[in-house]
Amino acid sequence: MNRRLGVTVVLAVAVVAGCGGEETKAAAPTPTAKASKDPLTSCVDQLVYWGTENLRGAPGQEGDYQHMGLTADKYDALRKIQKNARVIMAKGKLPPTWLQEQSEAACRKIVATPKPSNTVGGWPQ
């Protein structure tokens, strides 16, 4: 039994240390992981990130706002931006700054909208 425990500890240490000398890269955090940004910047980053992912056709991402870390307001804005982007893309190429500009305009409205004070953890009381 002690030998089994010793082998388990050695394997666990090897996994944590990155056995084989290869560097392991952590997955890049999505904008939802950065809480230190101001609300406008955070919102814009989220909409640009998820808009880019969804418009390029990343599998399994579109449609789950909770997975994306978005509020209902942000998700509604994202869907509207994506719908308009697809119309433009059907006629040609999307201008490079279009998604950023649309996200900023939407987020300015979202951030300026008063939030209800009778909520706990985002849920009405």
Rank of each mutant, 00 (worst) to 15 (best):
K37D: 15
N54T: 12
R86L: 12
T41G: 05
D38Y: 06
A77D: 01
S103T: 03
Q82K: 10
G51S: 00
R86N: 11
H67W: 13
G92L: 00
Q100D: 14
K93A: 09
T41C: 06
T41K: 09
V48E: 06
A77M: 01
E101V: 13
G92H: 00
A77T: 01
M89P: 03
G60L: 07
Y75E: 06
H67M: 15
V87E: 13
Q102V: 01
D38W: 05
Y49L: 06
L94K: 02
Y65M: 13
W50K: 05
R56N: 08
Y49W: 10
W98E: 01
E104H: 10
A33Y: 12
P95G: 02
W50H: 07
Y65N: 10
Q82G: 08
H67G: 15
D76G: 14
L94Q: 02
H67F: 15
Q66M: 14
Q46H: 11
L55Q: 05
L94G: 03
L70T: 03
Q102I: 02
Q46D: 09
L70W: 02
G60E: 06
L78R: 01
R79M: 11
R86K: 12
A33H: 13
P59H: 05
R86W: 08
K93I: 06
G92V: 00
Y49K: 05
V87F: 09
A35H: 10
G60A: 06
G63P: 09
W50V: 03
V87I: 09
K91S: 10
K83R: 13
A58T: 14
R56E: 09
C43S: 03
A35I: 11
Q82V: 12
L70M: 04
A90F: 05
V48A: 03
A77H: 01
K37Y: 15
G63F: 09
Q66G: 14
A85L: 00
D38P: 07
Q61K: 14
S36H: 07
K91E: 09
D64Y: 08
Q61F: 13
L47W: 04
W98N: 04
I88C: 02
V44W: 08
Y65D: 09
Q102E: 10
L40S: 10
